[in-house]
Nucleic acid binder design. Structure first.
Lengths: 156, 156
DNA sequence: CTCGTGATGCAATTTCGTTGCAACAAAGAA
DNA sequence: TTCTTTGTTGCAACGAAATTGCATCACGAG
């Protein structure tokens, strides 16, 4: 049993290549989540950014599309619960959401850099941070770097 | 030049053995922070608990001593900035503060491992984390690894 | 002891996160 | 297609934690 459409969808999901609305629709349908224009807009935005984004920032970006705070909020939760988004804490008491990377459903192990001045977030390359000498039993699920980004570090 | 008092203070700091008020006073003075009864109370409480404590919880504990929320808040920030406290997030959007438990007294130079389960904060060796390929202009002030410590990772 | 700067207490405000509710829309059934 | 069910949206309100303004007060240098 080889459904072309489903196989294609699967490949899309795995590679996080969510480009066309048809793909987004299919992904949502597969998860049993209703397809709404709001959700498509939200996923489109996240696909475009490919960064952990806060609820506030996403709300602002989607305000022009007529999306309400609460709608964005509830969809972020719903999509996270469905496994379509990952939610992270980057150290400033704000939840951020992003499309999962990596091959598996688990988010890739790339580190995040957060600017303590402007709050900007940058995803680092997988090999930007090397860990060694850690306790064998402990599990590291997230690596965060905090500091000042190139833009903010310039002398005033 | 060997100042006994300073040497003693240093040893205290290093071992996080802040027991007597005299020691607390000395540590604050060394950092150029004014010694106030409120700060002593705050540090005493943290020394007694030896756990990551939230601002709210600490405020409640110190209310009987007459400390105001804002005072606790600002002192937590000040002491953290001075390196006398470490500030962590466990995943619930609440800051928690505690006296450094590691060997070293200066925080910031080394990375921290935060167990998102039990809240334990461990100080890592200076060379435990190697960064490379970062933007030349950006400045990293804090490196945090998040995950589950050896104790918490055991199967339930 | 006196003075200047930083600290404190109190109150108000901001920022996020979260929820209630009535109108509305998606997806399946008829 | 139309009907019906049920999840979704927009708007407003609420709550908790963080953050700030300001007048008063105390530390500690001189």
């Amino acid at each position: 049993m080889e459904l072309p459409e489903r196989a294609k969808l699967h490949a899309m999901t795995m590679k996080t290549r969510l480009l066309r609305d048809d793909d987004l629709r299919a992904v949502l349908a597969q998860k049993g989540i209703r397809v709404t224009e709001q959700r498509l807009a939200l996923l489109r935005e996240l696909a475009k950014l490919r960064l952990p984004v806060s609820h506030a920032e996403l709300t602002e970006r989607l305000a022009s599309s007529g999306l309400d705070r609460a709608t964005v909020y509830r969809n972020l939760l719903a999509l996270t619960e469905a496994g379509l988004l990952v939610r992270t804490q980057l150290g400033d008491n704000v939840w951020r959401f992003e499309l999962p990377r990596g091959e598996t459903g688990e988010h890739g192990a790339h580190a995040h850099f957060v600017c303590t001045d402007c709050g900007d977030v940058a995803c680092l390359a997988d090999d930007a941070v090397v860990l060694k000498g850690l306790s064998a039993r402990s599990t590291v699920s997230e690596v965060q770097l905090r500091g000042r980004c190139g833009t903010c570090v310039r002398p005033s």
